[in-house]
């Protein structure tokens, strides 16, 4: 988990992005959620040595980022920040799998490197897809979509509560941490003992807050059901968006687009 300040910034920033107006933002969150899931499944369904087949999938993030007015630089930076795990596991591939697979003049590339690159591509595609989903649909939108797609209501509502109080609790944690930092010297006061009571404090406050929120809900007639005013409506555009992309994914999953173009080119020369 990243540092608290950057976490705070990230959630806030993605949240702000999600309130922009763009053709992508206006689409029904259900359509975006489904397309994203199909995209991820299609991407990871490739053979481990596949590289060129994956490239066609970059069309999706490219279109979404440009039509959705998302800042490319920010997304790339996020991508780099979360890369270590995929790299950590993937880097064993070139070490363990040394069979030469591609020979290009003097350059011999082992299967391990190919699959490592494949892992990095998958990683880039799937992570960006998740970030794009949230940056164009808003968290509340995703929750609403989940609920309409028959995810249990209490889970969806709970996600909303989590999101709402994330901001409050992160701010509270920040204050606690500042108080700790200001009074700990030479690394003393940063150990597990202090953390136990620090987190314990936060937990007590949170439990009390939970009680107060419940009280606030009771005061306004809460009866076990949470009603919202929001209504979702799938329009023609949503269906075109959804089926268009899914069709595209199926086609490029089964037909290697770059390979095809490449073949045409090498055929020409």
């Amino acid at each position: 988990m990243a540092k608290i300040e950057s976490t705070f910034f990230d959630i806030g920033y993605l949240d702000t992005l999600s309130y922009q107006q763009s053709p992508i933002h206006r689409l029904d969150p259900r359509a975006k959620l489904i397309v994203t899931l199909v995209f991820v499944v299609a991407v990871v369904s490739f053979d481990r040595y596949e590289i060129s087949g994956l490239l066609g999938f970059f069309l999706f993030p490219v279109v979404m980022v440009s039509l959705g007015d998302l800042p490319l630089g920010y997304l790339l930076k996020k991508l780099l920040l979360v890369a270590p795990f995929a790299v950590f596991i993937g880097i064993f591939n070139p070490i363990l799998d040394r069979q030469v697979m591609i020979v290009m003049g003097p350059l011999a590339i082992s299967g391990g490197w190919v699959s490592f690159i494949s892992i990095l591509l998958r990683f880039g595609l799937t992570v960006t897809a998740a970030l794009i989903l949230i940056a164009t649909s808003s968290f509340a939108g995703v929750c609403l979509a989940l609920e309409r797609l028959k995810v249990p209501r209490s889970f969806a509502v709970q996600l909303l509560f989590l999101y709402r109080y994330l901001f409050v609790l992160i701010a509270e944690t920040r204050r606690l941490l500042r108080a700790r930092t200001l009074r700990s010297f030479d690394g003393r006061g940063l150990g597990i003992k202090v953390v136990g009571s620090l987190i314990g404090h936060l937990l007590l406050r949170t439990l009390n807050r939970g009680r107060r929120i419940y009280l606030a809900m009771l005061c306004r007639g809460f009866d076990g059901e949470i009603h919202t005013m929001r209504r979702l409506k799938m329009t023609g555009w949503d269906f075109i968006f959804m089926f268009g992309w899914i069709l595209f994914f199926i086609v490029i999953r089964n037909h290697n687009l770059p390979q095809l173009i490449g073949n045409l080119l090498t055929g020409v020369f």
Partner: peptide
């Protein structure tokens, strides 16, 4: 009881926040 619903939500947010409190391992 219904009171679990907000409580679960805030406690989930709590876990999130608590994960940001890091500490040195002896």
């Amino acid at each position: 009881a219904d009171s679990r619903i907000p409580l679960m939500g805030v406690l989930a947010a709590f876990v999130f926040a608590a994960q940001m409190i890091n500490f040195t391992i002896p």
